[in-house]
Structure formats: structure tokens, C-alpha cells
Design a protein around this nucleic acid. Structure first.
Length: 793
RNA sequence: GCCGGUGUGGCGGAAUGGCAGACGCGACGGACUCAAAAUCCGUUGUUGGCAACAACGUGUGGGUUCAAGUCCCACCACCGGUACCA
């Protein structure tokens, strides 16, 4: 009987309680020890409870944290709650319960579920973004940004979710619909708080060189920031105002045959008396405004526009007259809202020119050489770009310019369940920060959480809270009623873990200096342009004001793949393929669940769930538990098995470091197979196996550790096994024999034999020799300890 | 369209240019059992053959190499990101 049933419910609970009682996983404030800060994205405690996807990430970094702890590091592996947010608020509105109550309930459930998995979180450092003692510091950081001019209020066209009745950041609009609820997003002009993330655009690109992120994450961020280089050029007009355009291709300026301005461009309003067809133009403007972003993209192939009659521009390099069009294919929000159109070398301009029968002038030939281009003729287009910028600069008609697609971050939400923005609006003094001594500015207790009909925050109706005095001049004033977006609290939470109870500061200098940066941060790809970008931005700001010790918060970032349903589709209620982790833990145990999720496939790639495969992981755990029955210290372990042990220690250690948890588990499975082949194990080696398995299956290993008296204290806090490089080498090797690259048999022999010696042995092997007999040997290739290949004619 | 990624048995997946399919699931055969489950032993890429063995085989088509899943060129399919960003 090789497997051994064990009562996972009893064993797992027992050790979870024991660890918690002893504070086995508490990070120590001993700042002279080597530290390791492992971090996973803290969850939003939704009403659905934990998803099987959560433990994939948490277990992976738990393994890392546990291994580092066993290697002697002072490890910080914390957990908390990103608890502000819409679903809770919507649930609260629907069921007339305060969102705080809902949040508390959800947190309790999540915490329970996480604890049942045996993750070695330091629960003494638990944080909650909705706790006033926490959001005090979110508000404080906002005020520092306000003081540095990075938080500002602005009348802006914003994305408006028709269902959430709330503005969205660009990053929250996915394919023209709301990221959260999937409803239509329209454009609306509203006065909003903004954060000037664009001021950090270049640094957010440049500093990616300093961090160890997956390449795909770096590229995705770089693409999102969207840097482009070109020039701004002034085109004179017949109405006495220059039209400033942005182009990445100043080399093609001789090919300009018309210009386009966006429907929102102020030029129209300013010169409407000169525009002969102003009635039609305004009609076009109106139609363009009505379109949502979604509609604009849908119709993106079919360009529309209208010519401004009576006005024209002058090409600054050849003084030709250029007609001006209005079209919604030019966006007011990028560049200058106006372009020079070069239909010969731009797809969109070409499409428009063809539709409106505008001339197309070629200025670059097939060999990439400039033609019809005055001073640029004969140059390569890349050189022409440089030359034209210099020329325009010397003439005072333009200058080099860098642009970014990244927009400033819309930071206002018209909802209740978020951090109140700590600003007072005074008629006389304008926007005045709430004094830091009055933080946290708490959410008032209210009963109706629904946003107002016009889209204003429900806080608007709480007159006693809204009406206040100006902190500066004492006059009657009103509080800001917008709250912060969900991304606020998560933009700095990793700092709070370093010193979560601090009342004077967001965390002490010593704690921040010791623990930061996060050594290993794992999270989802979906946060690449949201949380990951936002938090890098905040950290850079905190560096600028002397709080963060360096410019990047996360040294190493990895991304887990999603766990899909059995049908290979994303798990969702509507698809009916959701697996509840509670059921798995209850039936198979946390250790099995953990091993299964690590073994399921490449950690970074998506993997479909398969309930019948879990049995294999459970069998493995039982086979491990059964080792207790075959302990025999009167026998000696074979040297082959000893070698396998050393190899496995090496492999598991390296695989954890390189995120290959699946092959780490596979190598432990192979090792246990070898142990059963031998038929017994010594106490010493059972100890080694137990320690190697401990990060993956912490409960059952703790139980065996104690049952077999493998060592003192917890296995979880014992020393990680070391391997001997010399003992990783087999004494006998198997060498593959090939003739002309085709496999023709194999031989076993000792290591370190020469090519000639191996060849002699090979010739004695019939299945090999029959392919070389009577043939001329051209070449012998020998790869030491692996393969011998005879090339014959 | 552009930018990433991925294509390997019935399935999840392994393979520093060096024996393709480790490890696991499933399936099949056997042992144990009155029987079943569990467990243990064996087989399991395809084709041909009683067999030893042979041929074929990592999305497709070429190429480099003694040797290609792995490197190069061209293409196809799927997934993710992004999209009138001038």
C-alpha cells in the first residue's frame, strides 16, 4: 500500500492555527537582516468570493516567500483589501445596506478562504483601503500632488459610462465600452480632477530599463504611452492666425495638398464670420459631437468632412495655397487638433483625398529618396526629416516636438464609495486643500448611495457635509463632492505594508528604506496599463518629494496566466464553468489544490481547469504521506538515488527562481517514483524531501516533520536543503548512438570516456554497427556524456 | 492595420541545437476483491510486422547543420493588446 489516506481537513486546520498562534510568518522589523519583499496584487473583495484564479498567483509567490524564508531572509509577504469600488456600491444601493457592511462581510469571507489555503501571509500587517486610517494617506498624497500642481481641476471631454453614471479614465474604456459593466461609453464635457501623469511620460518609459519585467509588459506600457517624434509647424492663413499642426513626417511637407482640423478646434468659432459655409460647418460639428467613441471607430473606414469656404492656409515651405477641411478623423485631444494632409504618404489622408477629389502629390520615390521637394530633393527621407526640422526652426516656422498618446488621468468619480477628494471650493480663494491636520476627511454617513440624476455624486445632497468654511479665508465654502477612483488606494499600498500602523507618516523612513523596492511582484496582465502604470507614476512622485528611496517600486514583475474553465473559455457565471475553490479545498485539501495549480502548466500562460487531473496531485500528496511507512534507517540509500536527490534540490531551487513551478513539481514526482522503486527511505532523506515539498504543500509536510521527528520547530521555518554540485553528476551515463543523425541504439558506460573509447564500445553494439559496416566513416561527432554520431558515406 | 504571444500524443503539458513526448490525467490489460471503489504491476505517438525491427512524426512550405520542436526565410491558424494618435 503506497498511498496513505490522510485527513486533510484536520491536519490543515491544525497547522494553520499553529502558524498563526506562533506568528510563524510575521516579517520582523530587524533592519540589519537581508530582506525579501514578495507581493501579490491585493484583491477586490467581491461578493462572489475567491476565484480559482486567485490562488494561482498567491500560491506561486507563497512558494517563493516560503523558500526565501527557509533560506534565511527576513520575508515580507503581506495581504490586504482593495475595497473601494463600484460593485460593492451597486450591491449596497440595490439591497439598501451600507457599503461598509457589505465590504466587511466580503473581507471576512475572502480572509477565511485565503487562510484555508495555508498561504503564509503576514496577517498582522493586513490593510484595507477603505479604512480612514489608510485613506488618510491616500488623501495626503493627493494633497502633495495638488501642491505641486500635478492635481488640477479641468473642464474636459471625458468618457462617461451611461450605466455607472460615472466618468472613466481612458484606461478603463475597453473597446468603446465600460471596462466594468460593458455599457456604452459616451463623451461628455465635465469639470474633473485630473492627475498630470503625462508629465511623467518620458520617465515612465525610460525607467523601464531599470526593472526586470516581462518584455510583453514593457512593450505594452511603451505602446500605451505612445511616444512619437516630429515637429509642430505653423501654417499662416488668410485670416491672420497661424494654424499650428503636429506631424511626425515633416519631410513630406512639400506633399501637403490640404489641411484638416478637428470639429472641436477653436479656429472655427474664432473665424466663423469669415467662413462662408458656416451653417453647414456647424451642422457637421454637431453631428460629429453626437457620435460616441464607439460609433466613431465603427465608421472609421468611411471618412466624412467639410471644406471651410473662404479661408485657406499657406504652406510655409513653398507658399502654396492650401485648403482647410474639418473632419472627425482628426482628434482635438492629440497633437494640436490640426494636421497637414499628405495623401501620397498617409493612408487616412489618401482615403479622404480620394473621396473629396483632392490632389495627391508624391514626394518620395520607391528608393525612399525625396522628389518634388525643393531643398529636400535627393535626400533619404530620414535625413530629410532632420533637415526640414532644422530649416523650420531657423525660419521660425516650426520646431521639433515629442508627443505622447498617454492622457492625463481623470481622477474624479461621482460616486459615494471612494476616498473623498480633500479640497474645498471657495468663491474667493478657489480650490483650497483641506489642512493635513484634518485628515482623514471621512465619508459622511448617508443612506442613499445612488448618483444623482444629472450625474453628480450622492455626496452633493449631504448639505451639512458639503457646506463648510474656507480653510484659508474662513468664508462660506463648499467641499468637493467627487471621490477618487478605485485605482487611488492601490497606487501606493505596497508602501503601507512596510509600516501599516504608523500614525505620523504613511510609513516610517526606516521601514520604507529597508523594505523597498518590492523584490518580486506578481499580478495580472490586465493591470499593465492601469494599476502598474499608475503606481509607478505615484512612486516616482513620492521619490520626487523625498519619500521613496528610488524611482521604481517593483524590482521584478511576473504575470500569471488566467485559469480558464474546463471548456477552455474564460470562467464566468454566464458560461456556467465556474469552479469554486472552497469545494476543491474541502474535497481534496489545500495542499492538493496548491500542487494542482502549480502543476497545471506554464505559470505565465493561461491553462484550462480539469477536475479529473486533480486526482494526480492528490495521489502525489498521499504517496508522500505514505513515505512514513517505508522509513528504514538500517539500510543505505543507493548512490543513484542520492544523486537524484541532489539534482532535485538543484532543479527545484532553480525552477522556483525562474517561475517554472510546473517542472519543479514534476521533478518531485519523479523523485518520489524513484524512492518507491528503491522501496525505502532513510529519515535523513525523508527530511530533505519534506523541506523541498514544504513550500508547495506546507500542511502535510509539517505533519510528517512532526510525526517522524525530522527536526525541531516548524518545517516551514527550517533551513532550505543545499545540494553538492559534485553529487549532481551520475556515475554512469547513457549515450545515444547515431548514424548520420539517425538514432541507432544506446550504450551505458562510465563518465569521462574519450571519443575513441566510446566509438570502440559503439562498434560492439550490433544495432549501431550494422549501419556502418562496409561504409566509409567521414566524421565522428561526440557530445560528452550524451551522444555519438557517425557520419558515413 | 499595427504590436506582442502561441501552435508538440486522446487531454494538460516537458525538452542549454544532441535519444521528441519528462511529469501528470485518461484509456487498455493484469493482480487484490464475492463485487466495486481505492491501491499495486504492465502497456499506451502513428503505420506496417508474430517478432526483432523499420518507416513516418512537433501548424504549412523552403533553408542552414553531422544533427532542427529549438536557428533563418516565407506563409497559415488561434489568443491577447491597441486602433483615424497624424
Amino acid at each position: 500500500m503506497e498511498t496513505e489516506k490522510y485527513n486533510h481537513k484536520e491536519i490543515e486546520k491544525k497547522w494553520q492555527d499553529a502558524w498563526e498562534k506562533e506568528g510563524a510568518f510575521h516579517a520582523k522589523n530587524e533592519y540589519d537582516k537581508p530582506k525579501f519583499y514578495a507581493l501579490v496584487e491585493f484583491p477586490y473583495p467581491s461578493g462572489q468570493g475567491l476565484h480559482v484564479g486567485h490562488p494561482r498567483s498567491y500560491t506561486a509567490l507563497d512558494i517563493v516567500a516560503r523558500e526565501k524564508r527557509m533560506q534565511g531572509y527576513n520575508v515580507l509577504y503581506p495581504m490586504g483589501w482593495d475595497a473601494f469600488g463600484l460593485p460593492t456600491e451597486n450591491y449596497a444601493i440595490k439591497n439598501k445596506i451600507h457599503p461598509r457592511i457589505v465590504t466587511e462581510k466580503n473581507i471576512a469571507r475572502f480572509k477565511n478562504q485565503l487562510q484555508s489555503l495555508g498561504i503564509s501571509f503576514d496577517w498582522s500587517r493586513e490593510i484595507d483601503t477603505t479604512d480612514p486610517e489608510y485613506y488618510k494617506w491616500t488623501q495626503w498624497i493627493f494633497l502633495q500632488m495638488f501642491k505641486k500642481g500635478l492635481a488640477y481641476k479641468s473642464e474636459a471631454t471625458v468618457n462617461w459610462c451611461t450605466s455607472c453614471r460615472c466618468v472613466l479614465a481612458n484606461e478603463e474604456v475597453v473597446g468603446g465600452v465600460c471596462e466594468r459593466c460593458g455599457s456604452e461609453v459616451v463623451q461628455k464635457v465635465k469639470s474633473q480632477w485630473m492627475l498630470a501623469i503625462t508629465k511623467y511620460a518620458q520617465r515612465l518609459i525610460d525607467d523601464l530599463e531599470k526593472v526586470d519585467y516581462p518584455e510583453r509588459v514593457k512593450t505594452q506600457q511603451i505602446n500605451w504611452i505612445g511616444r512619437s517624434t516630429g515637429a509642430e509647424v505653423d501654417f499662416a492663413t488668410n485670416v491672420n492666425e497661424n494654424l499650428k499642426i503636429y506631424t511626425t513626417r515633416p519631410d513630406t511637407i512639400y506633399g501637403v495638398t490640404y489641411m484638416v482640423i478637428s470639429p472641436e478646434h477653436p479656429f472655427i468659432e474664432k473665424h466663423k464670420s469669415k467662413i462662408k459655409n458656416i451653417v453647414d460647418v456647424e451642422k457637421y460639428k454637431l453631428e460629429a459631437n453626437k457620435k460616441s467613441d464607439f460609433q466613431r471607430t465603427e465608421m472609421n473606414k468611411n471618412k466624412t468632412g467639410i471644406k471651410l469656404e473662404g479661408v485657406h492656409a499657406i504652406n510655409p515651405v513653398n507658399n502654396e495655397e492650401v485648403p482647410i477641411f474639418v473632419s472627425d478623423y482628426v482628434l482635438m485631444s492629440y497633437g494640436t487638433g490640426a494636421i497637414m494632409a499628405v495623401p501620397a504618404h498617409d493612408e487616412r489622408d489618401k482615403e479622404f483625398a480620394e473621396k473629396y477629389c483632392l490632389p495627391i502629390v508624391n514626394v518620395i520615390d520607391e528608393d525612399d529618396i525625396m522628389i518634388n521637394s525643393g531643398i529636400l530633393n535627393g535626400l533619404k527621407s530620414s535625413d530629410a526629416k532632420e533637415k526640414m526640422i532644422k530649416f523650420l526652426e531657423s525660419e521660425g516656422k516650426g520646431k521639433a516636438k515629442v508627443n505622447y498618446k498617454l492622457r492625463d488621468w481623470v481622477f474624479s468619480r461621482q460616486r459615494y464609495w471612494g476616498e473623498p477628494i480633500p479640497i474645498v471650493h471657495c468663491e474667493k480663494c478657489g480650490y483650497v486643500p483641506v489642512p493635513e491636520s484634518e485628515l482623514p476627511l471621512k465619508l459622511p454617513e448617508i443612506e442613499d448611495f445612488e448618483s444623482l440624476e444629472g450625474g453628480d455624486s450622492p455626496l452633493e445632497n449631504i448639505t451639512p457635509w458639503v457646506n463648510t468654511k474656507c480653510p484659508k479665508c474662513g468664508a462660506d465654502a463648499k467641499r468637493e463632492t467627487d471621490t477618487m477612483p478605485q485605482w487611488a488606494g492601490s497606487s501606493w499600498y505596497f508602501l503601507r505594508y512596510t509600516d501599516p500602523k504608523n500614525k505620523e507618516n504613511l510609513a516610517s523612513n526606516e521601514a520604507i528604506k529597508y523594505w523597498m523596492p518590492v523584490d518580486w511582484y506578481n499580478g495580472g496582465m490586465e493591470h499593465t496599463t492601469l494599476h502598474l502604470l499608475y503606481s509607478r507614476f505615484w512612486y516616482k512622485f513620492l521619490y520626487d518629494i523625498g519619500i521613496a528611496p528610488d524611482v521604481e517600486p517593483y524590482k521584478k514583475r511576473t504575470s500569471h496566466g488566467m485559469i480558464l474553465g474546463e471548456n477552455n473559455e474564460k470562467m464566468s457565471k454566464s458560461r456556467g464553468n465556474v469552479v469554486n475553490p472552497d469545494d476543491i479545498v474541502s474535497e481534496y485539501g489545500a495542499d492538493t489544490m496548491r500542487i494542482y495549480e502549480m502543476f497545471i502548466g506554464d505559470f505565465e500562460k493561461p491553462a484550462p481547469w480539469n477536475t479529473s487531473s486533480i486526482k494526480g496531485s492528490r495521489r502525489f500528496v498521499e504517496r508522500y504521506f505514505g513515505l512514513q511507512k517505508i522509513v528504514d534507517d538500517n539500510k543505505k540509500m543507493s548512490s543513484k538515488l542520492e544523486t537524484s536527490f541532489h539534482k532535485t534540490i538543484k532543479k527545484v531551487s532553480e525552477d522556483i527562481e525562474s517561475i517554472k513551478f510546473n517542472t519543479a513539481v514534476a521533478s518531485l514526482m519523479s523523485l518520489i517514483n524513484e524512492i518507491y522503486e528503491q522501496g525505502f527511505i532513510t529519515t535523513e532523506y525523508l527530511g530533505i524531501f519534506t523541506l523541498l515539498l514544504s513550500p508547495f504543500a506546507p500542511h502535510v509536510t509539517e505533519e510528517v516533520w512532526k510525526n517522524c521527528k525530522l527536526g525541531s520547530g516548524f518545517a516551514s521555518n527550517s533551513e532550505w536543503p543545499k545540494y553538492d554540485e559534485k553529487k549532481c553528476k551520475d556515475s554512469e551515463v547513457e549515450i545515444a548512438l547515431q548514424v548520420c543523425g539517425k538514432f541507432r541504439g544506446k550504450i551505458n558506460c562510465g563518465t569521462g570516456l574519450s571519443k575513441e573509447e566510446i566509438f570502440e564500445l559503439a562498434k560492439a553494439n550490433e544495432s549501431f554497427s550494422k549501419f556502418i559496416d562496409g561504409k566509409e566513416i567521414v566524421k565522428i561527432i561526440y557530445v560528452p556524456n550524451r551522444l555519438l554520431n557517425a557520419v558515413v558515406k
